[in-house]
Amino acid sequence: MKNQVERLWLVGMFISCLVLSGCKEAPQAQMETTYEVMTLAPTDRVLLSNYSATIRGRQDIEIYPQVGGTLTKVCVTEGQRVKSGQALFIIDQVPYEAALQTALANVEAAKASLATSQLTYDSKQELYKQNVVSEFDLSTAKNSLLAAKAQLAQAKAQEVSARNNLSYTVVKSPADGVVGTLPYRVGALVSASLPEPLTTVSDNSDMYVYFSLTENQLLGLIRQYGSKDEALKQMPEIDLQLNDRSAYPQKGRIETISGVIDRNTGTVSLRAVFPNENGLLHSGGAGNVILPVQKTDALVIPQVATYEIQDKVYVFKVVDGKAQSAHVQVTRVNGGKEYIVDNGLQAGDRIVTEGVGLLREGTPIREKTTSEPVVTDNQTKEE
């Protein structure tokens, strides 16, 4: 019985060894790994660059009173859309109406004085012809007439000034737009020297979007298009990303490029215009301008073909059938899914595009081919 048990134990051990050896041999056939490899060739890509931007109305007009006085009426509300010439505020008109009446009275008095001076001069002329009065008397009468004419002109000028001042008591909108904040209410004492305006009227039919480029980026644009004027003519339409990261539905165009580089920041200011038919954009807002830049004859690699070490980007080139790491300088495109190689690779180089994180320097690279057999479940079962 003991011998039989020993024989069974030996048979079990033999079978276990066979099973274990079979398990070890199975992965041996899978040790040789293949990798996808791509050959670099020049191609064209569009770079989408983001720039912080500020949004302004086509016109942001600060409204200040031209005369002083007490506000008697506020004719608009904040955010109201107004037309050119529409009344915004009314300043106490009583003192200005009185000033106008005084100016009118002065005009009438000056007219009467002029008429008297004219009669005196005409009379002196007749008497002078008859040698009744001297030439001095005639000249004196003439001078009095000229003074009366000047007094009338002065009185009329005062009338015009008084009428203007009275009209200025009705503060009107100088353009179509939207009313801003209203810091002053009825009863407030206002004047032309206010620390802040009565309100701001913004023309929001089209919106100006301001952003900046570095000097090097500006030079790149000029080299690409030949001149600044040609860049403005040929540059494609741009997109706007709003402050909540949503995309503005309408495209804009760059209208102007400043000819002066800011010494403090080393940047140049650009102005784009966007339509604002739905009133979605507001003066004083912020966002990001998305500027497309055409890149020709660029070397483009997928992001998965790279790995990073201490913020530096590397790829594995295939050299003599082995992996060789190479440091590259890249620009992100297509949302970061692709890189444009700025330095470190050249056309014709071959790089590994999968499994990069598992590779090591000198790893043998066997390239995948479309002719490699694919093992199906049915084939496995038959074997």
Rank of each mutant, 00 (worst) to 15 (best):
M38F: 10
L40F: 11
P42L: 15
P42E: 14
T43M: 13
V46R: 02
V46S: 04
L47H: 04
L47E: 09
S49W: 00
S49K: 06
S49D: 05
N50P: 00
S52W: 07
A53W: 10
A53D: 11
T54S: 15
R56I: 05
R56D: 04
G57I: 08
G57Y: 01
R58P: 00
D60T: 11
I61S: 02
E62K: 10
I63R: 01
I63S: 02
Y64M: 09
Y64V: 11
P65W: 05
P65T: 10
Q66R: 15
V67R: 15
G68P: 14
G69T: 15
T70C: 12
L71G: 10
T72F: 08
V74N: 13
V76F: 01
V76Y: 00
T77M: 04
E78N: 07
G79E: 03
Q80V: 05
Q80T: 06
Q80K: 06
R81E: 06
V82H: 01
V82Q: 02
K83Q: 13
G85C: 06
I91M: 09
D92E: 15
D92Y: 12
V94I: 14
P95K: 10
Y96E: 09
Y96M: 10
Y96K: 13
Y96L: 06
E97V: 11
E97S: 14
L100K: 13
T102W: 02
T102Q: 10
L104G: 00
L104V: 10
L104P: 00
A105S: 12
A105C: 02
N106M: 07
E108W: 01
A110T: 02
A110W: 02
A112Q: 05
S113Y: 03
T116M: 08
S117H: 03
S117N: 02
